[in-house]
Simulated scan of single mutants.
Amino acid sequence: MSIKVGVIGAGGMAQYHIAGFKQAGAQIVAIADLNEAAAQAAAQKYGVAKAYGSIETMFAELPDLDAVTIIVPNKFHAPLAIQALEAGKHVFCEKPPAIDAAGVQQMKDAAEKAGKTLMFNFNNRARPESFAMKAYAEDGTIGRINSAQAKWIRRTGIPGFGGWFTNKDLAGGGPLIDLLHMVDLAMYLMDYPEPAYVLGQTFSDFIDDKNFKGPWGIPDAGGPTNVEAAAHGFVTFKSGQTLNLQVSWAELVKREEVSVVFQGTGAGGKIERLFGTDGLDETSIDSCELYTQEGGNSVNRSIVTEPCEDMGRSRSAANFIYTITGEEKPLNTPDQALSLMKVIDALYESAKSGKPVAC
């Protein structure tokens, strides 16, 4: 019997979630959105039978719904996930997990109480390059990763002005919380050590300059633009490992770069995606490399993987279904999401205080 899934939110990411769920054999039975017309349009586009203007109606009319996926502005991730978990549904939620660590803790508690699966769309863990590199981490090739550098930088990548992305109350922050994928991927390859201290700074240069608007995102709206344009930080872990991070929507760099570089005791390495035009997948180039010493020589290994245009988004969604059915282990856990959000919270606090902050 296949898993029955309801989609909460009719935004663009729904296409990847739906594709992944179907790939794993699930049924997409309904789409719910406060904008019922948008839900109906999405249902028609993706061949979904039912559309609703509220999740309460969806839950009432579809009591046999097994799971939901949440694709809404960040502020609503935690309350909707908790509502769904309390209704007995498994939950797959878009990133970030919530707008702060307190919200993730509440989600985690609700999932444990309900005995249901709670996962998040950290889709870059599901890229072919990441699967390959994680295998080298697990088989001992890389050894202990002492230090890593996580980067997602854009030159002109602000996703609209005055919409929910730039509204701190709705988004929780700017690029640090939006483009948290490489910080997560670095910590994942490092086996998610427990963070100790974070020192960081945020920058708001260019956040009101429409010359720095990206080619994707949402239309400009009349709301506030009160988040950072860039964030830089340094994380120490209780294990002694360290992480540098650089994340930006608008920063004077040569090109968009999405990468994790690390230095291990057995090998170093890099997972990277370079964009010719900010944010456009069709202009991207992926690479994956290992750096070792062999026979007195410096050897760089190029790891060849199959192309993945959607950066692992559908494969990440498929893993959620496979986790529910017991066919795969989860690619991420609530504990990891909580640890990640503690790092983000601490960096924002450090940027305000000018001092290192304990996690």
Rank of each mutant, 00 (worst) to 15 (best):
M1H: 13
S2G: 10
K4N: 13
A14F: 03
Q15F: 08
G20P: 07
K22D: 01
A24I: 02
A26P: 04
I28Q: 03
L34P: 00
A42V: 02
Y46L: 09
Y46C: 06
G47H: 11
V48E: 00
K50P: 12
Y52G: 01
E56R: 09
F59L: 15
A60P: 01
L62D: 12
L62H: 14
I70V: 13
I71C: 07
N74T: 07
A78H: 05
A84Y: 03
K89Q: 00
H90E: 00
V91A: 07
C93T: 10
A98R: 02
A98H: 09
A98C: 05
V104M: 08
Q106A: 13
K108T: 12
A110I: 01
A111V: 01
G115P: 04
G115M: 00
T117V: 14
L118S: 02
R127K: 14
P128E: 06
E129R: 07
M133A: 00
Y136P: 05
G140N: 06
N146P: 11
A148W: 02
A150I: 02
W152V: 09
I153R: 10
T166K: 09
D169L: 08
L170G: 06
A171V: 04
I177D: 04
V183S: 01
D184E: 12
M187P: 04
D191I: 05
D191S: 08
A196M: 13
A196L: 14
T202F: 08
S204C: 04
D205S: 07
I207C: 03
I207T: 06
N211S: 11
N211G: 14
F212H: 13
A221W: 07
T225K: 00
E228F: 09
A230K: 15
A230W: 03
V235R: 10
T236G: 04
S239F: 07
V247E: 01
E251G: 00
V258T: 10
V258N: 14
S259W: 11
T265A: 11
G266C: 08
G269Y: 01
D278W: 00
G279N: 08
L280Y: 11
L280P: 10
D286Q: 14
E289Y: 12
Y291D: 11
Q293R: 15
G296E: 03
G296D: 03
S298Y: 13
S298P: 09
S302D: 11
E306K: 15
R313Q: 14
S316T: 12
I321A: 01
T323V: 05
T325P: 02
L331Y: 02
L331V: 06
N332Y: 10
P334A: 00
D335T: 11
L340A: 05
M341A: 07
K342Y: 01
V343I: 15
L347R: 12
E349Q: 14
P356C: 13
V357M: 10
A358P: 06
